[in-house]
């Protein structure tokens, strides 16, 4: 079968799984459904000839599942009844998003067809990447040599986000410590 048909099937499965993840009440079930979506993305990367991306996406999915399960499992909250206003707002949102989809179909005609990309800059990387950088993996030659400044900026964003997460969690542990000290005193 050609690649396009495989990817169509996987994408339909991913859409169903994402709707299920958003609509299921149980927390664990929705986290598992989001895992289906992420592993579908990883499978699509394999079909689209991006093996290193598939590995990274697989690892990302497992880490994300561990984080989400560790953080959210067992934390039930009392769901309020959905009022009439909420149902009306949901229907309005669905109608608006469907109309956006219908009007934006013609935009996709302007894009290059699937399987025929514009390769102006990338063809230069493919032809000269191994000779100029000495890397056998041309993706890493682009990351670490031609676009090294982009990578530096992206690493800065990653570092900042991890720093933010750590500082948010650290404030919590400090507050816990203060609470226990006040209880002891």
């Amino acid at each position: 079968m050609p690649v396009e048909i495989w990817i169509t099937y996987i994408l339909i499965l991913m859409i169903i799984a994402s709707i299920a993840a958003l609509e299921i009440e149980d927390v664990l079930s929705s986290i598992v459904a989001i895992g289906v979506v992420g592993l579908g993305v990883s499978l699509c990367f394999l079909f689209l000839q991006a093996p290193d991306l598939a590995i990274v996406q697989f690892l990302f999915e497992i880490f994300a599942l561990i984080i989400l399960v560790k953080a959210f499992l067992g934390k039930e909250y009392h769901k309020t009844e959905s009022t009439k206003l909420n149902i009306i707002l949901t229907i309005v949102t669905i109608i608006t998003l469907t109309s956006i989809l219908i009007f934006s179909v013609s935009v996709f005609d302007l894009l290059p067809d699937f399987g025929k990309p514009y390769m102006n800059t990338a063809q230069y990387y493919l032809d000269n990447g191994a000779r100029e950088t000495g890397a056998a993996n041309l993706v890493s030659s682009v990351i670490l040599d031609y676009r090294a400044y982009d990578t530096l900026g992206e690493i800065t964003v990653l570092f900042t986000s991890i720093l933010g997460a750590l500082s948010i969690l650290r404030i919590r542990s400090q507050m816990k410590k203060e609470n226990s000290e006040s209880q002891n005193a």
Binding site: A64, V139, V142, I143, E154, L158
Partner: peptide, 23 residues
């Protein structure tokens, strides 16, 4: 190879932002 190189770092950044949102 160019979009693959861009997406490779973007996936890792998503993990960081997800961890921050969860925190």
């Amino acid at each position: 190879p160019l979009p693959q190189a861009l997406v490779l770092t973007s996936i890792v950044i998503e993990l960081g932002t997800t961890a921050m949102l969860v925190a």
